[in-house]
Design a protein around this nucleic acid. Structure first.
Lengths: 148, 148
DNA sequence: CGTTAATTGAGAAAGCTTAATAATTAACCA
DNA sequence: TGGTTAATTATTAAGCTTTCTCAATTAACG
């Protein structure tokens, strides 16, 4: 199952004329090992620093671009000035959206089955071909609510 | 009505110990005169270039921060690397969300009355105090759909 | 009006991301 | 299996939006 994700990613690289390089493999494994987190480019770079200090920051950025273009990872913008990525795994963790705490910055998740019908309505009403949507709720998580 | 917006904004500045300066007035008028657009800081700066070339870019940024903090304008992030602002006018143009064309970058709008109940559900289910939400649909506008 | 603290303009600096380039390497084929 | 070729890489510099610094200016209050 986990291996499937890796194999699938390599296949996508191959099918799109990208080479399966050591650096790309390592970055892929990093996302698989941190599937619960939302990693920025620098997060990834720092995670590699000990074991793979030869991998440059620019390579991390380029790899994140390619992997998100291929849908292997998903790019999020939580409004904190940097993009954050998470591995895509529709089986174990289907399409979802985010709850962002305005106080501590923590990110929780919720699934979005409720949005499907809304998307159809919007498309029809506005003559707009929706490809994807993006929904974020900002507020205060339980911990931060209790603090005050 | 239009004057109300201006008066209201000045009042909010005053109530929050901000001064009503010439620069802030001019930037406010710029937003009122471009209520249909989503202006970036540089857009505003360029609009002022002819008549008010003495107003610096830093002042524009600072003013946008204050006005959006006070809710006079609203800050949008359409994912193109810069923030875009529009004047808030709940009477003439109630709370709404955006349809962003992946081809030409145009931004259309739709109202969001459908989201209110979803927000309540999310709050309850996740123990998360929602303050506001942000919904964007990405896809292709009618024009760009017809091109192909 | 004079005083005072906020605001301003200009330019430097920060922070994230993207090029440029010369050296390295994955992938294909003989 | 080894040679060839074009993609990929590390490093460094550069780009872009936004924020900071600071001396000079100005709005607001009495």
């Amino acid at each position: 199952m986990v291996e499937d994700l890796f194999e699938q990613a390599c296949e996508r690289l191959h099918n799109n004329d990208y080479k399966v390089t050591r650096q790309r493999e390592i970055i892929l494994y990093t996302f698989m090992a941190n599937s619960a987190r939302h990693l920025s480019a620098e997060d990834v770079f720092l995670l590699l620093k000990d074991q793979h200090s030869d991998i440059g920051l620019a390579t991390v950025y380029r790899t994140l671009d390619i992997l998100s273009e291929l849908g292997v990872i998903h790019r999020n913008d939580f409004g904190d000035g940097k993009y954050r990525y998470e591995i895509t795994n529709e089986d174990a963790h289907p399409h979802h959206h985010h709850l962002i705490c305005l106080d501590c910055g923590s990110v929780a998740e919720f699934d979005d089955y409720l949005l499907e019908s809304l998307e159809a309505q919007i498309s029809k009403k506005n003559n707009f071909k929706v490809k994807y949507h993006n929904l974020k709720f900002y507020g205060y998580c339980q911990k931060c609510s209790e603090k005050t």
